[in-house]
Design a binder for these strands. Structure first.
Lengths: 138, 138
DNA sequence: TATTGTTATACTCTATAACTATA
DNA sequence: TATAGTTATAGAGTATAACAATA
């Protein structure tokens, strides 16, 4: 790797480290673990089956069972058997869950704080570069 | 937030998610958990006291004790009492630890892979922007 | 028989509180 | 008395293997 690439690798490491720490804190403010907050966030776009959650969260299905069980016990998500295939359970966010979701987002100031340090033009530039890094047209 | 800022927030989320997953896998290839690999990485610059590690890793001292105990049991780090203040234990990486450290870095292809998608000029551009985002001159 | 999800279990991560050794 | 680190303990995250229900 070139010198620039080394610097960049270190900067990304620092960014991720700070981001993770900030997300942990935001989740905690809302009374959740980071894993629970992350699962809740993945339900934003609508309900998911247990298996879909395992795929999206890159973890084992048995882990999803436990996370959902804890969130359900607190009334933040609901688990409903699919009428067409009763093996499948669809998980969705309850109104109380939406409140907590909003609390996490409100407490998670990292993105707006850090992104706000850039001008509009810089933001567009960064977005273009990240699009490349993430391997899609952006 | 503007539309660009929203896109950017999502891109950073995606980047961090992918980065964390890749780091987990790299650590696992080397037979470590992500937390253990991270601690080992923080010892790259030289030895640290238990307390310094707790500060740098943003976690409780009792947690460091356990992580170091497991790494020490596998011969990857050594815990040596400071001669000047025998309350302090200095932790350093053993030769075997350095081997494992290298194994983690080798398996962690994310940075070189992704950064390699950018031209040299784009890399310099990104580095400058990240410097701003991280809140220092870079 | 194959698939979805759960249960049982074990290990790691993490924090809090109480403790030991040293200063 | 204050500080560095450890121990005891408990809850959460995670995976593997065995299992139940449904298809």
């Amino acid at each position: 790797m070139t010198e620039v690439a080394d610097t960049l690798a270190r900067q990304v490491w620092d960014l991720v480290f700070a981001y993770d720490a900030a997300y942990d804190r935001a989740a905690q403010v809302a009374g959740l673990s980071a894993a629970q907050a992350c699962l809740l966030e993945h339900l934003s776009g609508g309900s998911r089956s247990m298996g879909e959650l395992a795929v999206e969260l890159l973890c084992d299905a048995s882990n999803v069972t436990q996370l959902v069980t804890r969130l359900e016990a607190r009334g933040l998500v609901a688990r409903v058997p699919d009428p067409d295939d009763r093996r499948i359970k669809r998980v969705s966010v309850t109104p109380a869950g939406h409140d907590v979701q909003r609390a996490v987002r409100r407490a998670f100031e990292f993105p707006s704080e850090r992104i706000g340090l850039l001008t509009d033009q810089e933001q567009r530039q960064l977005s273009g570069l990240l699009g490349k890094v993430l391997g899609r047209a952006s």
